[in-house]
């Protein structure tokens, strides 16, 4: 057999490319697996926060950390509650110690006491991933490890994330962080493992006052959808064009 150097190199290169494609990277899904992988197209998960009802007890943060295995004593958290105190001079005082996990039991804010007569308004704002319709985090992931399901929830593949942090940088809401155990990006999933089985998100279930609600925005009879359609609601930072799907009743202009 005649084998010139040129043809040897050509064939060698071809074999090298073929050998570098591991068979394990091809995986056949059963129809059920495929459906579960993309989510239910008849559902669009949405969230409603009624800030008038929130008392800052921190039950939601506790429940979330336990449910989702986020280390309890580290400052990182998938959901948190912010406290806003506006004084008569127009100044805003904001804090969220430990993400509000332990509840706001002290009137001290930023380490100082504000006389009650100076306070014109005060309220709590729970925060979580907005599961944006146009998510910046999904756009910037270099390996496609974070993705949006058919039912609108943004998830992270822990086996594929390289931990570059680009998604953390791209999120205008600061909901993402590095999970210290898995060493990958992490964030709120609306408790996708629960809601796809007919349960409520952990924070929704833990909230004693009904300040947090989750529902299907594609279902006109869903209480969340009804509230969003009939009441005056707002979203956070709409100027970024991310189209957030967490809606707030009673959002104040001071909210960051």
């Amino acid at each position: 057999m005649k084998c010139s150097r040129r043809s040897f190199l050509k064939k060698g290169l071809g074999s090298a490319v073929a050998a570098s494609l591991p068979l394990s990277s091809f995986k056949f899904l059963s129809p059920a697996e495929a459906r579960a992988a993309v989510g239910d197209p008849a559902v669009r998960w949405g969230f409603l926060v009624n800030t008038y009802k929130c008392v800052g007890c921190g039950m939601c943060v506790k429940a979330c950390k336990k449910e989702n295995g986020v280390p309890y004593d580290l400052p990182i958290t998938r959901t948190w509650v912010e406290r806003y105190v506006i004084t008569s001079d127009g100044e805003d005082h904001i804090d969220s110690p430990a993400g509000g996990r332990d509840g706001y039991t002290s009137p001290k804010i930023e380490g100082k006491d504000i006389p009650a007569e100076e306070i014109t308004k005060a309220f709590f704002v729970p925060k979580l991933c907005n599961q944006c319709a146009n998510p910046a985090c999904v756009q910037v992931c270099p390996v496609g490890a974070t993705f949006q399901t058919e039912d609108g929830v943004v998830l992270i593949d822990r086996t594929w994330c390289i931990g570059c942090g680009y998604c953390i940088m791209a999120c205008p809401y600061g909901v993402r962080f590095f999970h210290p155990v898995y060493k990958v990006a992490d964030k709120c999933t609306f408790c996708y493992h629960r809601i796809t089985k007919g349960m409520k998100s952990a924070c929704v279930q833990a909230c004693p006052f009904g300040a947090r609600q989750i529902g299907n925005l594609k279902d006109p009879d869903d209480p969340v959808t009804k509230a969003i359609l009939t009441e005056r609601v707002a979203v956070l930072k709409d100027e970024y064009g991310t189209k957030p799907q967490v809606f707030y009743i009673g959002l104040d202009e001071n909210v960051r």
Binding site: D95, G165, R256
Partner: peptide, 10 residues
Amino acid sequence: FVYPNEFIYW
């Protein structure tokens, strides 16, 4: 006031 998850990641 800094969001809880914010750090110097880069």
